[in-house]
């Protein structure tokens, strides 16, 4: 049982990075098709953070972001969080709802629905790829959306990890457009027990 994310070997970290790569690659393709634009993705970053540093993990703790969060149940429970800068979420909502560029100033109910659906599709694409590689059955919850401080959103997404450990493992992939503008951060947050299951399926369980 991997109790602490700090005990992972290099081989295991590489395997998880590859999972992030395959999953986020699939999600980026879906996003690209939905908005009909080219989306670049970064190499997935694996970060193991003590809770005390977590609110500072993406942007600053008080940076205004939109977070779409899903809980994944099944053989390896985890959280999926899609974090977007506010400008990016407005822009994505414009594209999804076929509104003129620059016309949206605030996020309304329609915009929330559109982004939740986007989160749904991205999470589905990510999990499909993950399931394909690991043969695990995974069931995402309905998405939930919050517009608030990055720190508050991140901390709300990891609280269940606190029952067993003192660290969070974030598998983060950044989506950017051609012009380098950040579209969003896609995060997979495995729960400690589920990491064992994933690593075993990948044949790198110690």
């Amino acid at each position: 049982m991997i109790d602490e994310f700090t005990q992972l070997s290099d081989l295991q970290l590489d395997a998880l990075r590859e999972i992030g790569n395959i999953g986020a690659g699939n999600a980026a393709t879906s996003l690209s098709m939905m908005i009909n634009r080219r989306i670049e993705m970064s190499v997935p970053q694996l970060t193991v953070l003590p809770f005390s540093e977590l609110p500072y993990a993406i942007g600053g703790p008080e940076t205004l972001v939109v977070g779409v969060y899903l809980q994944v149940q099944g053989m390896s429970p985890c959280g999926i969080l899609f974090l977007l800068p506010l400008e990016s979420s407005l822009k994505l909502a414009e594209m999804l709802l076929a509104k003129p560029s620059g016309s949206l100033k605030v996020m309304g109910e329609m915009e929330h629905s559109a982004l939740m659906e986007l989160g749904n599709i991205l999470a589905g694409s990510f999990l499909n790829a993950l399931a394909m590689v690991t043969d695990l059955e995974l069931f995402p919850s309905v998405p939930s959306l919050a517009t608030d401080m990055s720190g508050a959103i991140l901390s709300a997404a990891v609280f269940s990890l606190g029952e067993v450990g003192d660290h969070a493992l974030l598998i983060e992939t950044r989506f950017t457009e051609d012009n380098q503008q950040v579209v969003g951060h896609f995060l997979l947050i495995p729960e400690p027990g589920s990491l064992d299951v994933i690593l075993e399926r990948l044949g790198v369980n110690s």
Partner: peptide, 11 residues
């Protein structure tokens, strides 16, 4: 001194 904590959500 001032004590400060940032980004309280469900905490």
């Amino acid at each position: 001194n001032i004590l400060m904590t940032a980004g309280l959500g469900s905490c």
